[in-house]
Amino acid sequence: MSVFFYARVSTAEQTLEHQRIQAEKAGFAFDHVIADHGVSGVAVPMKDRPEGKRLFDMLRKGDTLVVRWVDRLGRNYADVTNTIREFINRGVIIRTVINSMTFDGSTADPMQMAIRDAMIGFMAASAQAQAEATKEAQKAGIAHAKGKEDLYRGRKPSFSRAQFETTVDLLGKSVGISEIAKSTDLTRQTIYRIRDDVAGAEKSLALWRM
């Protein structure tokens, strides 16, 4: 029985090291670390990613798969739910770093199974909804900035796009401000500003082409 850590690093500003360190600080230790780099969680199914495909081949009954959150598996509802169900049907235990969620196929109680499956569906739907919201905000910000090179852009954001996306993601999961600050290296004040005006923060990043 082995413990696998899977990470999906979808942008240049995200790093495998950040996700791995966060997991280790939460008390996880791994036998294998597997990561896909520069791969969209919306457009590319788990089985079609180079390392995702390898993970499918490697996981066996009794193994544990650790991910930062289900959005690392993907941001497409059908793909994420199918992936999780296939893994737990194999006898694989899935654990998340954020909020310490655990999913497995050990229970035979129909009520517990229903609760587990409902939670999986909710988390997968949240991942897709967040991806769609971010995409729309990016479009709005870019459209606002397009063709307006001389437009006063205001103060340059004190956060990167990766930090912004992580902050919005964690806020959507009701993670506390202090924990988000530790995860993103942002100040509490910056996180509050993002929380209070997500669209404005997104537009600011677009205006500065960040």
Rank of each mutant, 00 (worst) to 15 (best):
E202I: 07
A43V: 13
F122C: 09
H37I: 12
W69T: 13
A29S: 15
M1A: 07
I177V: 15
I34P: 10
Q112N: 13
Q19H: 05
G38W: 05
L151I: 10
S160V: 02
D109E: 06
M1V: 14
Y192W: 10
A26E: 08
S183Y: 06
V9Y: 00
V92C: 05
R72Q: 09
H18I: 09
L65P: 00
D104A: 04
H18C: 10
T11S: 10
A127N: 07
D79A: 01
F103W: 11
F56A: 06
A12E: 15
T15A: 02
A133K: 12
F28L: 02
V44M: 10
I115F: 08
F56Y: 12
L65H: 00
A181C: 01
L205P: 08
I84W: 01
A23L: 02
A201R: 00
K173I: 05
I142G: 04
V9W: 01
T134C: 11
V168A: 03
I191N: 04
A145Q: 04
E165V: 13
R95F: 00
I142T: 15
F28P: 13
L151R: 13
D57T: 14
Y77Q: 09
A108C: 10
S10V: 07
A201I: 03
H37V: 12
A199L: 12
V168D: 05
D57M: 09
D117C: 04
T107F: 03
A131R: 06
D117F: 00
G41R: 02
K203M: 14
V42P: 02
P50D: 03
F4Y: 14
R49C: 01
G147K: 06
G121M: 00
A201W: 02
T15N: 02
Y77S: 06
V198M: 06
S100F: 07
A133R: 15
I93E: 13
G41D: 05
A108V: 10
N76G: 00
Q130N: 11
A125L: 12
T167G: 08
K135Y: 09
A108K: 14
A35C: 10
E132L: 14
